[in-house]
């Protein structure tokens, strides 16, 4: 099977170091890492923001060569920032993002004809997520999609993304801080550190070293200060 996304030697000066990555059809990949480890930079580079060096192919096409009419069918990007300056209608916002019908599972029927400034933060987030999903892109790039959502919607959203990806042989790369959600929903979990992909999977020592946390009796806790003191000079 050929990868849906082939990224080679992606670099953004000072933020992303030579990242290569393959994602296969049907895969949901979770991207975790401490603040400043390069998750957003990787999503930016795949989107073409900031003139990254390196190659990106989505289904054999370099999306950076596509204009606004085609690009949303190849990839869409949901940034972490959820503020929109203008009081657009939810329906218009989705149309500006490349159109298409938002997934029923987001339950937007009552929100579509409302202005963004009349929505709650969570409702607005659902509309912005719908904007990224509606064009049915081959590759979904989501930065912290569950931020601002209540627990039920966090679960619904991640399950929606997983089924969209699996049922239609598309792919998603999701940056997320919740390590348990990453393990639960991700077909693979990539851990970023210092601008590159440090390790795959969340088991054992590398995670403790990168995040400074460890799992004790089923809960994440800071790595014990005693162990810390012993390892530092």
């Amino acid at each position: 099977m050929t990868p849906l996304l082939q990224a080679r030697n992606l670099s953004l000066p000072g933020r992303l170091m030579d990242v290569s990555l393959d994602i296969y059809p049907g895969e949901l990949i979770c991207l975790v890492g401490p603040n400043g480890s390069g998750k957003t930079s990787l999503l930016h580079a795949l989107t073409g923001i900031g003139s990254p060096a390196g190659e990106v192919l989505v289904d054999h096409v370099d999306p950076r060569r596509l204009g606004p009419a085609q690009r949303p069918h190849y990839l869409t990007f949901l940034p972490a920032a959820r503020d929109i300056a203008w009081p657009l209608l939810a329906r218009d916002l989705i149309a500006l993002g490349g159109g298409g019908a938002p997934p029923d599972a987001l339950a937007l029927d009552d929100l579509l004809d409302r202005r963004l400034d009349t929505l709650s933060t969570g409702e607005r987030s659902r509309v912005l997520i719908a904007r990224a999903l509606a064009p049915k892109p081959k590759l979904l790039l989501l930065d912290e999609p569950t931020a601002n959502l209540d627990p039920l919607w966090q679960i619904r959203l991640m399950e929606l993304v997983r089924s969209e990806v699996r049922d239609n042989q598309r792919a998603a790369l999701v940056a997320i801080h919740d390590l348990d959600a990453a393990t639960r929903y991700g077909d693979r979990v990539l851990v970023m550190d210092g601008g590159s992909i440090a390790v795959e999977g969340l088991d054992g020592e590398p995670v403790a070293r990168i995040f400074g946390i460890e799992k004790v009796a089923g809960a994440w806790r800071p790595v014990s200060p005693l162990a810390d003191r012993r390892s530092s000079p």
Binding site: H44, T47, G48, I49, R64, L66, G67, P68, R71, P72, L75, T76, F77, P79, A81, D83, I84, A85, W86, L88, L93, L96, G97, G98, R131, L141
Partner: peptide, 19 residues
């Protein structure tokens, strides 16, 4: 007109749309 409308979605999204 069109690119400026897209900019309403934020700079990152406008760029991701190819503007």
């Amino acid at each position: 007109v069109r690119p400026l409308d897209s900019l309403a979605l934020g700079e990152e999204v406008a760029q991701s749309l190819g503007h």
